[in-house]
Computed example of a mutant assay.
Amino acid sequence: MTQSKHTSPLDGLFTRQASGPLAGIVIADFSRVLAGPYCTMLLADMGATVIKVESPAGDETRTWKPPVHEDQSTYYLSINRNKSSIALDFRDETDLETARAIAGRADVLVENFKPGGLERFGLDYDAVSHSNPDVIYASVTGFGTKGGAALPGYDLLVQALSGLMSLTGAPDSPAYRAGVAVFDVITGLHTAIGILSALHERGNSGRGQHVEANLMSSALSGMVNQTAGYVLSGQVPTRMGNEHPSIYPYEPFRTAEGDIILAIGNDRQFLRLCAVLGAEHLPEDPRFAAAADRSHHRGELRPILQELLAARSAAEWFDVLTDAGLPCAPINDVQGGIEFAQRLGLEPVVQVGHGDRTLPGIRNPLTFSKTPVSYDLIPPGIDEDRDAILDWLNEAT
């Protein structure tokens, strides 16, 4: 990975205490809402210095309430730690020159304006790369830069247009969106991968490049077996509720108290499940002997398993089946999910910030043995770091 050409002037300027693998890399974050900010937060956790460039009104997610933490939007707080903020009005010539100066000194620029939206400000890829030829310029759009360039890039629209909603819900229910903006998150991850790859290539060639990601392409890639299944077989997948089209048993089952998920992925696991349930005869039945047979005859196997699982509670079955090495899970709410991760020692909740400026956050999922991630800056207020950023720019002149 190439190091930033701007390391020395940044030392201590934004009070980062980071020593992660991206320490010294400067990212100009012109993005807002979710996909771009999520991407840049992950990179900031890994040590990058991220300058969040906002309009005077601020990132929209600052106003997305409830829920709140001390009257601040938890949505905004969830994706903007480890950043510094400056508010710039591109219609003001002085502010616009500041934006151009930030872009001109950054190693990476991330933006999610509509295609062509930054051209009139001289902040598009051609303009920025002319003055900063080794910049990695990452653009996030909803539907690409061709026929979908004018379409608004909202995750819910992509869930509908990609086909995901047609797969979510019971067979006889309306289509449902996922419970989180899943394609914004996937696109943010794809963008981070693209940026890291381009930084690696820049280290070899010394050249920057334009990285592009869009929600629609990320959706079709992220739907993996469903989209590939259609392309390869011509079969259009449909809503199956909590069932899996190719594996059985792989769904929730009622117990004496609560539901439990079974995720039996192969014949060995099915043999073990039947032994634990006291139903050793089931694998001898030709309808259930092999995975494809169980999938085809799920309507006959389901009530048999349901009757056996009714003997204990979900919590009891979780212990028994887990001890037998079988994949299963009770259905937690979000609180239960975090508490379960805590019991496993995953330490999902971290303290962000230092001194008297801290708040809880969710741990970055990556660990590094030599260059750990850090959580040294709480999400910034609007324009909170203007003076420090302007000082940094002035040091270069």
Rank of each mutant, 00 (worst) to 15 (best):
Q306I: 12
Q351C: 12
R272E: 11
S295P: 01
D285K: 00
Q342C: 09
E347W: 11
L273F: 05
Q335C: 14
G258L: 04
A314W: 04
K370W: 04
A388H: 11
V320N: 13
G345K: 06
A289F: 08
Y375T: 02
T371V: 12
D267K: 04
S313T: 15
L262M: 05
D259V: 08
A324S: 10
R298D: 00
R272I: 06
T358E: 01
S295A: 15
T367K: 07
Q351L: 14
R272F: 06
E307L: 10
Q269E: 12
G381T: 13
T367Y: 03
Y375H: 08
R268Y: 05
S374Y: 12
A290G: 09
E316F: 11
V349A: 12
G265E: 13
R312M: 05
A324K: 09
L366F: 08
P380S: 11
I389K: 10
P380T: 07
A314H: 06
Q306E: 13
R343P: 00
Q269M: 10
I264Q: 02
L326A: 05
C328D: 02
R287T: 01
R272H: 06
L308H: 12
R298L: 00
L277T: 02
P286W: 00
L273H: 01
V350L: 05
E300A: 02
F340Y: 12
P379C: 06
F318W: 15
H281A: 15
A329S: 11
N364M: 08
N266D: 10
R268W: 11
A388K: 15
R287M: 01
L344H: 08
V320H: 14
G336E: 07
A263Y: 10
G258T: 01
L377K: 14
R298C: 03
Q342E: 15
I389S: 09
V320R: 15
L309D: 03
Y375W: 07
A291V: 08
L344P: 04
R312W: 08
G265M: 13
L262S: 01
D285N: 08
V334S: 14
S369N: 07
P286D: 00
L377H: 10
V350P: 05
L273V: 03
A279I: 11
L377Y: 11
L366A: 08
L273A: 01
